[in-house]
Amino acid sequence: MLDVSRVQKELADCNKDKAISGVSIDLHGGDGDLSHLAGTISGPVGTPYEGGTFRIDVRLPSGYPFEPPKMQFVTKVWHPNISSQNGAICLDILKDQWSPALTLKTALLSLQALLSAPEPDDPQDAVVAQQYLRDYPMFVATARYWTETFAKRASVGIEEKVQKLVEMGFPEALVRSTLDSVNGDENMALEKLCSG
């Protein structure tokens, strides 16, 4: 049911200008499954997220594009509208304001815009939202620290780590998803891969 030709066109279109837009999208695994994708967003300049690369898990329901894509931050991020626990996102266009005329690229760009302009009145993470409203400097410091810790380390070395683990004989798709699940920690990923 998934509109494969549209998704393929979207992927090509999105990645055409990823250097300029700061968002990109690829297949999640190597098995060619178009319903599970991996998006990236570069942190907007002038925000505590600057310099970070944020990975987004994207799942397309069979009704896509008539039903909204399901998106979730894989990279841990400190933001009022994103759960600091599990990366769940509170954004209207991913819910009732979704329109089939929107694309994965526009959705990712909206997420990027959300990083620039949080909406603490409609929070996903109440703790972060409260900090944002009551102690903004502290919020900025925390968000920046999280960016440094999770969005840089993971992104910088990620391809090296993938390569290293693939060379050890693990399938690439599994390597990537395992690295995702442990936020890029190489040793933990290896442990997980070995334990099955």
């Binding site: 266009i93 304001q97 329109s99 089939p100 005329a101 929107l102």
Partner: peptide, 8 residues
């Protein structure tokens, strides 16, 4: 059932 255009 709303129109498919965004924000319409």
């Amino acid at each position: 059932i709303r129109c498919m255009a965004p924000k319409c």
